[in-house]
Simulated scan of single mutants.
Amino acid sequence: MPERTVLVVLYDGVQSLDVTGPVEVFAGAGWAAGDPSAYRLRTASPGGRPVRTSSGLTLLPDTGLDSAPVPHTLLIPGGADGADGAGNAPEVVDWLREHGPKAERLVSVCTGSFLLAAAGLLDGHRATTHWAFCDEFAREHPEIDVDPEPIFVRDGRIATSAGVTCGIDLALALVEEDHGRETALVVARHLVVFLRRPGNQAQFSAPLAAQTAHREPLRDVQRWIAENPDRDLSVDSLAARARLSPRHFARAFHAETGVTPGRYVERVRLEHARRLLEETTHGVAEVSRACGYGTPEAMRRAFVRGLGTAPVEYRRRFHVPRTTH
């Protein structure tokens, strides 16, 4: 099994979990695969100086950037400065511009994508970043195809993830790619996280992705939808629950949540179906009924449209069996 060097770049203001989350995944993979040398983890900073994270922790790097080996995987974490991180870490950007093309795999976590972008390494590629900075990312870098929805994006040798904990999801995906699903599953269980949220999963769950309505009747409808995905969730039915006319309800719901009632229902049902496929052994037909799809074919179309895969394939890849202790 070839050794893969993972080099994590550190700088002042870096987000500590962007560093430690992926590092714990890669370190755990060596143990899970029965080969401690599966990944050789290294950290480097400008001049090899200690760095102070955004939360006040001090990290001591292994080496300076100028002395760092050419890695298999080059990982750039984000920082508290967000989009300003590139401007506040010019030494890192200059180093990335020269050395980034030499790595076999370029990875960013959260706003680390701004550093890769400033170095010109994301030009012509699809990428993502923390949801709060996606609009700014797209404005500053029109040469990048910015996708604000997924928790991580793979585009050839480049992988970018959304905020903070999404770096763990991306690292698990890379471990699965390098060492197989079983190894990644062992790591996920050890860290008590999902194996693994698919990259095209939205950065927010359906209720979080939409705004919470201001008016109580509409908030009650949002709760009702989340708690009863198998019920009649047509506009007429929901409008009657809110005691509004269908036209008034549809306009008010969209104005206060940012999505149409139909789109909101679609997101809730898809999220509920994913969770059942990941966490239970219910059959596809049973899941489709429980989530209001009615038929397996209707659910299959919703999965292909929303996730790019069929329910059976989704379960094969992402079902996490319950374990007993």
Rank of each mutant, 00 (worst) to 15 (best):
E140H: 01
V175Y: 12
Y264F: 04
E140K: 05
T260M: 01
Q201R: 14
S161P: 09
L191V: 08
D135N: 14
D62T: 05
T160S: 00
D236V: 15
E136A: 11
E313L: 13
V287G: 11
D35S: 10
A202C: 07
V235E: 15
S234K: 04
S37E: 11
A127C: 10
I151W: 09
A38L: 02
V187A: 01
P50I: 10
Y11Q: 02
S245M: 08
E266S: 11
L307T: 11
P142L: 13
E136L: 10
R317Y: 14
R274L: 12
R289E: 13
A250G: 06
G199V: 04
G156F: 09
K102Y: 11
E143I: 10
L57H: 09
R139M: 12
R247F: 15
F303Y: 08
D169T: 06
G56E: 02
R251S: 10
E216N: 02
T111R: 02
H125A: 06
T63M: 11
E297F: 10
L75H: 00
A171F: 11
L218Y: 03
Y314S: 04
T5H: 07
T309G: 03
L7E: 12
V107C: 00
L96S: 12
V70D: 02
A80V: 15
E136M: 05
R317V: 06
S245K: 07
L185Q: 07
Q203Y: 15
A68H: 10
L208P: 14
F318L: 06
A171D: 04
A138C: 04
R215C: 10
L170M: 12
A44V: 08
F194L: 11
P71V: 09
A310C: 04
M1A: 09
D84P: 05
G308T: 14
